[in-house]
Design a binder for these strands. Sequence first.
DNA 1: TTTATTTACTTAACCGATTAAGTAACATAG
DNA 2: CTATGTTACTTAATCGGTTAAGTAAATAAA
Lengths: 337, 337
Amino acid sequence: MENVTIRMLAERLQLSTATISKALNNSHEISEETRQRVLALAAELNYVPNPYASSLRKKASNTIAVVIPEVADSFFAEAINGIEAVAQEKGYHVLIYLSHENSQKEQTILKDFQSGRVDGVLISVTTETTATGLEQLVRDKPVVFFDRVCEEVKAAKITTDDATAAYRATTHLIAGGCRRIGLLSASRQLSISNKRAEGFQQALLDHQLPLLPNAITYCYNESAANYQLLKTAFLENDYDGIIATTEKLSTAVYEVCEALQWRIPEDLQVIGFSNLSTARFLNPSLTTITQPAFEMGKAAATLLFRALKSNNFPLQQQQEVIPSSLIARNSTLAKDK
Amino acid sequence: MENVTIRMLAERLQLSTATISKALNNSHEISEETRQRVLALAAELNYVPNPYASSLRKKASNTIAVVIPEVADSFFAEAINGIEAVAQEKGYHVLIYLSHENSQKEQTILKDFQSGRVDGVLISVTTETTATGLEQLVRDKPVVFFDRVCEEVKAAKITTDDATAAYRATTHLIAGGCRRIGLLSASRQLSISNKRAEGFQQALLDHQLPLLPNAITYCYNESAANYQLLKTAFLENDYDGIIATTEKLSTAVYEVCEALQWRIPEDLQVIGFSNLSTARFLNPSLTTITQPAFEMGKAAATLLFRALKSNNFPLQQQQEVIPSSLIARNSTLAKDK
DNA sequence: TTTATTTACTTAACCGATTAAGTAACATAG
DNA sequence: CTATGTTACTTAATCGGTTAAGTAAATAAA
């Protein structure tokens, strides 16, 4: 069975393809009667328009790209959910690209976007990303950064209150009696990592606590390597409190404590930036900084679609900070909020 | 700056567009010298081919679709990982569609595939799915079902050993002393749900245990509703062992036990079909049936690409069962494997 | 030497939609 | 009664590649 095209509809109805196209697109140039005839035949023959023909001509694909470091992370999974909810509603398609925390791969992905394959991009950069290639992308088409943004690039950004969250986390640990607090960071480059580090340091300062020489541990993207790194760091620094700034690192802390036979929270209080739905069922339940992942995805997508709809929307100036929340559980001792 | 097209390259080099196209596609018809000149200019002008022009002409999009009920589930997240790994390697693009456990939405998604937007489809159906629309899809283009397959449709399928896994889970509970075992099922229609139920019943039979009248609880897709449902079911049936056949349901059990103040495993032993990386850190650590999610995704994608490469590959006859594994932890008492 | 084949191209049709520009028929305004 | 508009179409160009078919020149085979 041949694919049904606009031309076939035209022939059957003794009309031009232009008329069919306009009828299907509800053009006012077409009489109601003709429109109905076209719609009827289209339905009867199960006509489905070829998106590529349309994209080629219109130079618009009704497709957006989502570039993230990984999917197996509650934050990104939930963010995709938020993005997809908006995209589905707007009739857009979502291409997912995983950079696997590899800026090389990310570059390759960004390069592909110069092809016009997608109308817009939502991106959360890798831990290694520098601005290279991103300015180009932002110049070329609508882009919204979310969570892991690139500070140097002037573009729309949806973030959470990273510095404040880290400040709050640190204060929470201090309130629980911690004096030797460590921070596990995913990256030296990432602005959200740096902001979290700043909030951390500011909190120590405000509470007259010294910054340990090895207060901040920069981790890898590989769990086996991190395991060794953390084990050593824990033993050398004798932390009494730790802030894990990513979900994976939160779990790693539990793993290392198990191995070292450090009790949580008696020996080490732990707070993790995590969206794990099971945080409350962990042993002990994990005090978290929970990010509004779904909302951030939704906000990012909403912003993007606004830009896609009206091209005079000043997308690059948009900034939105959605607050995270600290949920105190049993891995920390402070009783405050 | 205008977009660089093949035509522009042709004009600059005083060649025809056909030559350019062939040179870029490494056709043997083009001399090495010309090929190099074309490649050099293409690189210089940063030429990026328009995928839609190419897709339109070649009737191939180098894009596959992944249709899943949700992303916020370790199994699906990991499966995407596996799929993406293969797709990236093969130079394909991945469109993600979420059916949100809604067969209506799924239908809409499937309908879109008739447009030729994607060259192949990887799908894990909703809990409500009937065969409608799926046969059509399978007839139209390469499709591989994974995990949640549709039994009635003759098509390539990647599954795990559902019946065996449930049998093993049940036996494990029995070995731990359970006599009143319940099974939480996600669906009455899903073949994987039914297979798990079968394995469960067979194990009871083989161990001379009666099947409780309310042994199987069919759950909703909504956690608040499930919470109530399970609470009631637990109280009414006084289970001493429970098998949660999905990740979400596993967590729900912990929630309900907390509310009912039932201790795990003393009052209720729990085993869950789950790929949560935090299973071992739960309180108590959760005995799981862990599915090879990444591998299943990879296997499904590999199968699909084999079919996309050679069109005489008998895709519809492919069946692969990848074994799951039972990982005994503290939510159950049996000490076996 | 003539014919066949190979090499390295070009020409032009084509994929299936969209859309600027054109037109015939009819209505309305001046 | 002519000018102007409006309605409901059609014609043909276009988006940017790919590819079947054609060709001229060089090379090999008969």
